[in-house]
Nucleic acid binder design. Sequence first.
DNA 1: GACCCATTATTA
DNA 2: TAATAATGGGTC
Length: 203
Amino acid sequence: GLDPNFLRQSQFKRPRTRITDDQLKILRANFDINNSPNEEQIQEMSEKSGLPQKVIKHWFRNTLFKERQRSKDSPYNFNIPPITTLEDIRMEPQVSAHEYYRTESGINKRSSRTRFTDYQLRVLQDFFDTNAYPKDDEIEQLSTVLNLPTRVIVVWFQNARQKARKTYENQADSKDNEKKELTNERYIRTSNMQYQCKKCNIV
DNA sequence: GACCCATTATTA
DNA sequence: TAATAATGGGTC
């Protein structure tokens, strides 16, 4: 048999470092001034915050990436309908989710949870059952068909894979369980970036 | 940059 | 309180 744990965990991982609010404030302030700091600036932030330079670099990479994603398709604004009439403007004097999120005064709130419709879930699940790793254009298609931001689609597949792995491992643990036979064929990518097909054993 | 995955936090 | 959407730091 094949054991995902074995394939995945070949080394110890550094424990996740938590960035405190104060540290975040320093990073954020610098980010607002300059997206891509040079070595000198990174070192300065490192000294100020006590964060390893590596962590700072990574944070800037991720934050810049997210920022671009956000402005690209406004993933967290999708539930705010486009304004078509004057009344809509009157009815919704809200700041955008993005601005709300970023504003310091607005209590750093996580964007509200997407409620998928039954139809959306069915389509997503159907797709997942044959391919757990949709290509960019496939995500794009799902996005337009389901009227969901691409970001939401990507996250859904990420979580679906996570869930699939977990249930698969549980089944593997309880040895001779016949449920194993019921496992759908799914391609799960291992950490070595290889594809592994459950059941048919293709790598 | 894409993905992993423990964790967080929002809803039914 | 369970299910799971979203986050963020980690790896390659």
